[in-house]
Design a protein around this nucleic acid. Structure first.
Length: 568
RNA sequence: CGGAGCGUGGCGCAGUUUGGUAGCGCACCUGUUUUGGGAACAGGGGGUCGAAGGUUCAAAUCCUUUCGCUCCGACCA
């Protein structure tokens, strides 16, 4: 492609709207433009990258017998009501009516649609297993679109669905998707880690997320520093250390603690470690008040709590409701003397001896509080967020916490949708059985951003060759006929050999060309100038490593192709 | 939705405190000279300051409402 003819609007400065590197570079390098928050136009250069990634994903899916199809973006409300998700996904969906008043939504995901499709066609166990996938625009009215294409309201996703006769079949399908994903991400030139994940709104059992480690990541991931344990912090569990405090239990005592409401305040006021205080959280779980006890230095993991209680909604009790619900006072709430309220405690509370806790009275705390002796606990649960340095649950190692971008997520759905939507098949004995399903997603546009997060420097993007929009960029320097002719010659030969090549034939100064070439991140740059031609060479520079090479005129195209083959 | 910030030619910003009718850099157009790391000179086009209402002789600037954008939290590919 001749750059003089390209629609490639690059920017010298970072747009004010972008805060995150990948977002800034996608705008600056002319990959996309914004329509409104979380909604973008992909420009020619950006769309080429998207198509490269899509193709890599397609190949990996097809190798596992995935079959590509294309489902509608417009969904009827009936199917979503049938699965029960019309309300559950609720505000996340863009809903609308047609002229007759019939309700629709724009598809945020397609479990309902594929299940509906398959339930009409799959009759026999002989029709299974089956894996169907599509690459398509999804629409979600995100609460907070963020970081450009990282969390858009409209984004391209590859979603796949597997259908099996039983759970063993599902395990196989799941594993082959796990493998396909690992391969696809590696082929995109990304360093991706699979981690255990929570299943969230999709429902189902096992789940893994594929994480690109990057500082701008929205997820926190716990890794073991010695084994391969890795999990989203949402679900990560720390190994238990059983060092029950052997201190003798002292007598419970109420003491005056004027104005000391937070754990920090009370622990410095009483000169105790925060780990020896009991934090009592007043929470409404599906509207019902409960008390959750955490060690003072631990953070509640709300997802774990919701999962254990099989609840949907968790809110913090408003300060002015403390009297009504707990007969207590905000800032001084505690488990001692708390009647008629369910008390759930993190497992670490079990080991606490002579702790500090609120006395349910303005400006008073108890000291020497001991679980079981001084109050009853309905259930001990693992409720805390793991922190760096925690023991690994699988070995003797320690956990580290890093930020990650979730680029893929796979779920074992089981029969959740096949049962609600009645997708069944006849087994060998002629008995009707629910189809066992899995669902598998890759955020294609998010993957573009994640790739940039992992492959950039101060000068711009440095695409891995596999996803680069073009492989080679030729920069003719100066207004010189020899230079122009040589550049054209190489450009034509490379192009005819199937190498995607850009020719910067714009009437721009050298600096502009160099800077644009670096900004848009083409893996191999060739500089053709009068100076180098005189020396019988053209200059090559590898974008990622910055290495300079010389291509000797004569057999130059072969040499260029060889050099390109060495680049990752 | 809660908290914070912002909205002035295509992009980045100043001007707002102390009202007086819009400016700088980049980009763009024309010409000349340049041409290996974002050229120089000369000339030129483009904005009524997010929107609506109000105060005032006078509003980018003060007041009210509203819309949008960004960041922090609940959501997710």
């Amino acid at each position: 492609m001749r750059m003089s003819k390209m629609y490639l609007p690059t920017l010298k400065e970072n747009p004010a709207e972008a805060d995150v590197v990948s977002h800034q570079l996608m705008l600056r390098a002319g990959l996309m433009r914004t329509l409104t928050a979380g909604v973008y136009t992909y420009l020619p250069l950006g769309y080429r990258v998207i198509r490269k990634i899509e193709e890599i994903i397609r190949q990996a899916m097809n190798e596992k017998d995935g079959q590509e199809l294309l489902m509608p973006i417009i969904h009827t409300s009936e199917l979503w009501k049938e699965s029960g998700r019309w309300d559950k996904f609720g505000p996340l969906m863009i809903k609308f009516q047609d002229r007759k008043g019939r309700e629709y939504c724009l598809g945020p995901t397609h479990e309902e649609i594929v299940t509906d499709l398959v339930r009409d066609e799959i009759r026999s166990y002989k029709d299974l297993p089956l894996n169907l996938y599509q690459i398509q625009t999804k629409v979600r009215d995100e609460i907070r679109p963020r970081f450009g294409v990282m969390r858009g309201r409209e984004f391209i996703m590859k979603d796949a669905y597997s259908f099996d006769i039983d759970y063993q079949g599902l395990d196989n399908s799941y594993q082959s998707m796990y493998d396909a994903y690992s391969k696809a991400f590696a082929n995109c030139g990304l360093d991706v880690r699979a981690v255990e994940a929570d299943t969230g709104a999709m429902g189902g059992k096992d789940s893994h997320e594929f994480m690109v480690l990057a500082n701008s990541g929205e997820d926190r991931v716990a890794f073991c520093n010695s084994c391969d344990y890795a999990a989203n912090v949402e679900r990560a569990v720390a190994g238990e250390i059983t060092n029950k405090n052997t201190q003798e239990e002292k007598e419970l005592e109420k003491i005056h603690t004027p104005g000391q409401k937070t754990i920090e305040e009370i622990s410095s006021f009483l000169e105790v470690q925060s780990e020896n205080t009991i934090k009592a959280l007043a929470l409404l779980v599906d509207k019902e008040p409960i008390l959750v006890l955490m060690r003072g230095d631990d953070q509640l993991n709300e997802i774990k709590l919701l999962n254990y209680l099989a609840a949907d909604e968790l809110t913090v009790v408003a300060d002015d409701k403390f009297t009504e619900y707990y007969n207590s006072v905000a800032g001084f709430i505690g488990p001692v003397g708390m009647d008629g309220i369910k008390i759930y405690a993190d497992k670490r509370i079990k080991d606490i001896v002579n702790a500090v806790a609120g006395a349910n009275q303005e400006d008073y705390h108890y000291i020497n509080v001991n679980p079981e002796r001084d109050f009853k606990i309905d259930k001990y649960l693992d409720l805390r967020n793991v922190t760096a340095g925690d023991l690994c649950p699988k070995c003797e190692g320690q956990l580290e916490i890093k930020s990650g971008i979730e680029v893929g997520h796979i779920f074992k759905l089981g029969t959740k949708y096949s049962e609600s939507l009645q997708a069944r098949y006849l087994d060998e004995n002629g008995r009707e059985q629910p189809i066992v399903m899995g669902s598998y997603g890759i955020g294609v546009t998010r993957l573009v951003a994640a790739t940039i997060e992992q492959h950039h420097d101060d000068n711009g993007i440095a695409w891995p060759k596999a996803v680069a929009p073009y492989q080679v960029i030729i920069l003719p320097l100066g207004n010189n006929d020899d230079v122009k002719n040589k550049s054209e010659e190489i450009y034509n030969e490379l192009t005819s050999r199937g190498i995607e090549t850009l020719l910067d034939d714009r009437n721009e100064r050298a600096g502009v060309k160099f800077n644009d070439a670096e900004l848009i991140g083409i893996p191999l740059r060739l500089t053709v100038g009068a100076r180098s031609l005189k020396n019988g060479i053209i200059e090559a520079k590898i974008r990622k490593t910055g290495e300079d090479k010389e291509i000797i005129l004569g057999n130059s195209v072969e040499a260029i192709i060889d050099l390109l083959a060495e680049i990752e």
